[in-house]
């Protein structure tokens, strides 16, 4: 497993908890908890795919730029999802927070 943490700027989200996705081959789960800084989003990634950190950073930065994710901590367990699937799950979980607020 490869693990890393990113700390990215994002507009403040309405703090909430959520879960999206399932850990299975080509899929991932994203757990959302509340963090500290209201204009930062912390993302902990644990992935079975080695050597794709640059791709992860691009996909994650894009998602937290498109959705308010400030003040959140995202924890990701990944079992080899493609960037498209990662992006889809991020949209799903962040949109579910926007709808809940």
């Amino acid at each position: 497993m490869e693990t890393f943490t990113l700390d990215l700027p994002s507009t403040p989200a309405n703090g909430a908890r959520a879960l999206c996705g399932v850990v299975s081959s080509g899929n991932l789960e994203i757990l959302v908890d509340t963090g500290h800084a209201p204009d930062r989003c912390r993302i902990d990634v644990s992935t079975s795919a080695q050597g794709f950190r640059d791709t992860w950073e691009a996909v994650l930065a894009d998602a937290v730029a498109r959705h308010p994710a400030g003040g959140l901590v995202l924890s990701i367990n990944d079992a080899g999802a493609t960037p498209a699937v990662v992006s889809l799950r991020l949209d799903q979980v962040l949109e579910s927070l926007e709808q809940a607020s």
């Binding site: 908890r17 850990v23 757990l31 908890d33 644990s46 079975s48 367990n77 990944d78 079992a79």
Partner: peptide
């Protein structure tokens, strides 16, 4: 539930993905 992060240490030792 998942926020308690009760993940399997036995899968982690084998370097396999865990679930929350």
């Amino acid at each position: 539930g998942p926020h308690e992060r009760l993940t399997s240490p036995h899968l982690a030792v084998l370097d396999l993905p865990v679930a929350f």
